[in-house]
């Protein structure tokens, strides 16, 4: 075969280019250890995501600066949203779909994966600076595809926690009974959490300083004298760090119907003015449970 000299040179240059491209990619994955989305994870059932990770999509701490984020994508949202992680952390995302094919893509970065029902995408990402990243679904997933978005918040270390707060109180109490406001605080970090549980009701604030060990749950009850508040609606809010849980309690002269309220039972239980209000079932670190012993302000 007759090949012109220039054409031979061109052929050689083209081969050098091609082999060069392959070499750089090989270097990246072998020498630099860049792992790509692959088949690391077992398959799941998209219609019943009830395993430990995806039944409760969340961020979990697994090492000092290491976190895992369990994310589900579904028409037309991501869970959790926003995903909050601290700066200088290494986060491994596990992403799966409940319905059709989506993607999980951090805008302006190379954090990008397809999300396929039945498969779990795994990606480890290093975040340094605090930053807010938009998350888009970049695979068409149905008529509202363009509304499918989420956020990843990389927050300063001191602002980051994995605290879960849940506060409960009756809707109605009779004048003279105590209003028991129970706060359940879970510290999902590995390190102990020093914080203050504060209840604001009426014009008063009650608070309690606590230390909750990593992975532990603390429960406390504030017993408030309803007589002092007087009849009527009273807004209350429990605050722990940045987290707030709030509702309204109504103090009435006399409860209308005893059968009506599950709420009443609770009230009845403490009707005789159990000042301590201690229902500390899970709180292993409960140092002080008497709400009235808190710092009245």
């Amino acid at each position: 075969m007759n090949i012109h000299t220039y054409e031979k040179l061109w052929l050689v240059a083209a081969m050098v280019l091609i082999v060069g491209f392959i070499a750089t990619i090989t270097y990246g994955s072998v020498a630099l250890g860049i792992t790509m989305v692959g088949d690391q994870q077992e398959t799941v059932e998209p219609t019943e995501l009830n395993d430990e990770r995806f039944s409760d999509p969340r961020v979990a701490q697994v090492g000092e600066n290491e976190y895992e984020a369990y994310v589900t994508a579904q028409m037309f949202s991501f869970q959790p949203d926003p995903i909050e992680v601290p700066e200088d952390s290494e986060v491994t995302f596990y992403v799966t779909s409940r319905d059709v094919i989506h993607s999980f893509s951090l805008v302006g970065t190379n954090v990008n994966t397809m999300v396929i029902p039945g498969e779990v995408a795994e990606m480890t990402v290093e975040f340094d600076e605090p930053e807010e990243y938009g998350v888009v679904c970049n695979e068409y997933c149905g008529p509202n595809h363009h509304n499918m978005e989420g956020m990843v918040h990389v927050v300063p270390e001191e602002e980051f926690d994995l605290t879960e707060l849940d506060a409960e109180a009756p809707d109605e109490v009779e004048t003279g009974d105590d209003i028991d406001v129970t706060a359940t605080v879970e510290n999902r970090l590995l390190d102990p959490l020093e914080t203050t549980v504060a209840l604001e009701i009426g014009n008063e604030t009650f608070s309690e300083d606590v230390t909750i060990d990593g992975g532990e749950t603390y429960e406390t009850t504030f017993a408030i004298d309803s007589t002092q508040l007087g009849e009527g609606d009273h807004d209350w809010a429990v605050t722990v760090g940045d987290h707030t849980d709030s509702s309204t309690v109504t103090v009435v002269d006399e409860l209308e119907d005893d059968a009506d309220g599950e709420t009443n039972e609770n009230t009845d239980e403490d009707a005789d003015g159990d000042e301590n209000g201690t229902e500390d079932e899970t709180g292993t670190d409960a140092t002080e449970n008497d709400a009235s012993g808190g710092d009245d302000e």
Partner: peptide, 11 residues
């Protein structure tokens, strides 16, 4: 390339 469930080697 970005599909979970296909090994990196195949890609």
């Amino acid at each position: 390339y970005l599909d979970p469930g296909i090994a990196e080697g195949f890609k």
